[in-house]
Simulated scan of single mutants.
Amino acid sequence: MKLRTQLDLFEHDPARLAKAWRAAAEQALIDKQFSLSVRQERHDYYMAEAIRLEDLAALCNGCAAKAA
């Protein structure tokens, strides 16, 4: 069986992934199994990843616009 090491651009769209990370960040704030400080840490981590992915999506969109 061949091991896939490259992400599929259509399945791993940065904008779509950022949306999922933002949803995870919102959920992290209400997960009662964690203490308030842990919930906030998780939220901050997820938001940072969402912002990173949104920046990547904007960069990708900028490159596509220049190529056209």
Results as ranks from 00 to 15, higher is better:
46 Y>C: 10
41 E>T: 08
23 A>Y: 01
25 A>I: 08
2 K>L: 08
29 L>A: 14
23 A>G: 05
6 Q>C: 04
58 A>D: 09
57 A>K: 04
67 A>G: 10
1 M>C: 03
37 S>A: 13
3 L>G: 00
53 L>V: 03
62 G>L: 10
8 D>R: 09
49 E>S: 07
4 R>W: 00
8 D>Q: 03
19 K>G: 09
66 K>N: 14
27 Q>D: 13
33 Q>M: 03
2 K>Y: 01
31 D>T: 10
9 L>Q: 10
57 A>L: 03
21 W>Y: 14
28 A>D: 05
33 Q>R: 12
27 Q>S: 14
1 M>E: 00
62 G>Y: 08
17 L>Q: 13
61 N>C: 05
47 M>H: 00
7 L>F: 05
28 A>V: 06
27 Q>L: 13
38 V>A: 08
35 S>M: 05
4 R>P: 00
62 G>W: 08
9 L>W: 02
58 A>W: 03
25 A>S: 11
16 R>L: 14
62 G>T: 12
8 D>P: 01
14 P>G: 09
41 E>P: 00
6 Q>F: 04
63 C>E: 11
21 W>A: 15
44 D>I: 07
19 K>T: 14
31 D>M: 07
62 G>F: 08
22 R>F: 03
44 D>M: 08
64 A>W: 08
37 S>V: 13
17 L>K: 11
16 R>W: 10
59 L>S: 14
5 T>L: 10
35 S>L: 04
38 V>H: 03
41 E>S: 09
66 K>F: 14
41 E>C: 04
23 A>H: 04
1 M>D: 01
39 R>T: 02
12 H>T: 13
42 R>E: 03
10 F>W: 07
13 D>N: 15
60 C>M: 10
11 E>Q: 14
61 N>E: 15
14 P>Q: 06
12 H>S: 14
5 T>K: 05
25 A>E: 05
67 A>H: 13
39 R>G: 01
14 P>I: 08
34 F>V: 04
66 K>D: 14
46 Y>K: 05
60 C>S: 13
16 R>T: 15
13 D>G: 09
57 A>H: 03
32 K>C: 01
41 E>Y: 05
59 L>F: 12
2 K>T: 12
44 D>H: 09
56 L>Q: 10
63 C>Y: 13
5 T>Q: 05
47 M>C: 02
12 H>F: 13
56 L>M: 10
18 A>E: 03
31 D>Y: 05
6 Q>D: 07
53 L>H: 02
53 L>I: 05
25 A>V: 06
39 R>I: 04
4 R>I: 03
48 A>Q: 11
48 A>Y: 00
2 K>P: 12
56 L>W: 01
26 E>D: 15
52 R>I: 01
49 E>W: 00
25 A>K: 04
